[in-house]
Amino acid sequence: MSDSEGGETPQLSTHTLAALQEFYAEQKQRIDPEGDDKYHVGIIEENWQLSQFWYSEETALQLAQEAIAAAGKGGRIACVSAPSVYQKLRELHREDFSVHIFEYDTRFAMYGEEFIFYDYNNPLDLPEKIAAHSFDIVIADPPYLSEECLRKMSETIKYLTQGKILLCTGAVMEEQAAKLLGVKRCKFTPQHTRHLANEFCCYVNYDSGLDCGITI
């Protein structure tokens, strides 16, 4: 992330702008005669090279609705490496909540000020405009099933949230998730557009609508 001077909002580099222009051109020229949206939720398609695995339409919708309910009227939602949920939230966008996407994939810069460039290797390298504990809920999906990735991303999550956390990651990370974030596994099981070898789960630290049976 480029450092900002004089408190100014970071500007996109020439390279990033060029990449975005190329992306827009590809989207404009893209022809899908069968209308097959199986492998993307929203305008931007998943990129396996960035360890992106889109949720199914049903899962993205349920997670988005859960985030809206948890944030409350006028609430602020942070999507950390959860791009398909972010895109679903934009589809549902109303005046009674706001959302930001914290994402390494610069294609999401097309969403303007809602996009915050994010690299989990530098968990607190965020623009000054992102104040500590300024989001009512953080929904996060670490790109890798590793203790290091979850540990570093946990720093970001705890910095951003006022308290509520909705984490989606592998079942193998349950113990680490509880230790690092104090979250518990839900009965709701997220589904992806593609079959993944690892079992995925949702974890929260509040009394959610995902059938968790826990209290704040």
Rank of each mutant, 00 (worst) to 15 (best):
E113Q: 08
P127E: 03
Y86G: 06
I216A: 14
C168E: 03
S208P: 05
E175H: 09
F188C: 01
A69N: 03
F53W: 11
Q27D: 03
E46H: 13
Q87F: 03
K73H: 11
W54Y: 15
L61D: 13
G112P: 03
K158D: 07
S13Q: 05
A25L: 10
H15T: 15
M110T: 15
C186P: 04
Y203D: 09
K187V: 13
L124Q: 01
E103T: 12
L126H: 01
L89Y: 06
V204G: 05
H195E: 06
Y104D: 01
G209T: 10
L160W: 03
Y86C: 00
L63G: 06
K187M: 15
E34Y: 14
M1K: 03
E91V: 10
G42P: 08
A132V: 01
W48E: 03
Y120A: 02
S81G: 06
Y55E: 05
V204W: 09
S134V: 13
L210T: 05
E114S: 07
S2L: 09
I43E: 13
M173S: 11
Q65G: 04
E148M: 10
V85F: 06
G42K: 12
F200H: 11
G6V: 09
A60K: 07
V41I: 15
E26L: 09
F23K: 14
T193I: 10
E57H: 09
Q62P: 00
K184N: 12
D37C: 07
G163I: 11
S2H: 07
Q21S: 11
R90C: 10
A109P: 01
K129Y: 14
V41G: 02
H93P: 07
K179E: 12
V85I: 15
C79R: 03
E147D: 11
G163C: 03
K73C: 13
